[in-house]
Design a protein around this nucleic acid. Structure first.
Lengths: 154, 154
DNA sequence: TAATAAAGTTAGACATATCTAACATTAATT
DNA sequence: AATTAATGTTAGATATGTCTAACTTTATTA
């Protein structure tokens, strides 16, 4: 199976995300979600249909096939994990983390993705709760230097 | 000034990077560097010339203008810093870090970039040298769990 | 239910970015 | 210096992805 373009991946993901909170997904919803016009959606959906990722009866709602659902889920999963890393580890604002995740999700390698996930996991399962060194990083960002008492942390 | 497309940014960066190790930059060099054919380079260079970022006399060498140099430098600087973060902090292989940096450099926000740089800096200037917690992260990646003696670290 | 509004579709234009094939210029070599 | 090789350019094709304007279908409502 040919790799999807970033654009088609976006459309697939949009359908998925909209379906998480809506009973049905319309062409118009996707257009609004991605900030494009409806003919662009119709075009893209046509291509996704040809590939067996979306089902679309003329003038009807959009539905993901099992195959489409699986791919969309994977893409969105990447999105969420990149978001989490940027936001929770690096301290990037929620809105920027969201935007960056939207772009990066299409390009990042499996290897970097794995490491990013591991890092979040590493922090989440830190034996003594939220790590002191991450607090220190926040201090460093704020004050431009390491806190003084770093050697006394427990 | 209109934002450059990813593609044009790539061409500009390529000219810059090649010029770091070569006296002159030829159309052919850029084509090889970016793995495209020469007409694509000629096209792109035409656009970059129109914008005053590159100087190109017919059948001659390629040169960056001051403006072009500055932009290229910024892009490549981002590249290096993303690379460093992926490679040194997350432990992504050099080749993958390079590829990912190539893509991500075009999309990442200023804010996330700043945080990424700060994080690398935070680690580089860590008071006691290479941080124990980063060693612990490597352990975590390798063994899937935190090391036992984490509370005894100094 | 007939008229109107909303949503969806089609056709065709346009921009970007790439390519191949043919041609032009410059550099190297005999 | 003439020939050949290397490099650069042009023209035209193709693919992607978007748009506007015109039209069609479906849904709403008066």
């Amino acid at each position: 199976m040919e790799k999807l373009t970033q654009s088609l991946e976006d459309y697939l993901e949009a359908i998925y995300v909209i379906s998480l909170t809506s009973k049905v997904v319309r062409v118009k919803d996707v257009a609004e979600f991605l900030d494009v016009k409806t003919p662009s959606v119709v075009d893209a959906v046509g291509k996704l249909s040809e590939r067996g990722l979306v089902v679309h009866e003329k003038y009807g709602y959009l539905e993901l096939t099992d195959k489409g659902y699986k791919i969309a889920e994977e893409v969105y999963d990447k999105h969420k994990k990149i978001y989490k890393f940027l936001n929770e580890i690096l301290g990037v604002s929620t809105s920027t983390s969201k935007k960056d995740a939207c772009n990066i999700e299409h390009y990042i390698s499996k290897e970097a993705m794995t490491k990013m996930i591991k890092f979040s996991e590493f922090v989440d399962t830190y034996p003594e709760g939220y790590p002191q060194w991450l607090k220190d990083f926040n201090y460093y960002v704020k004050h431009g230097r390491h806190p003084e008492n770093i050697s006394m942390e427990k």
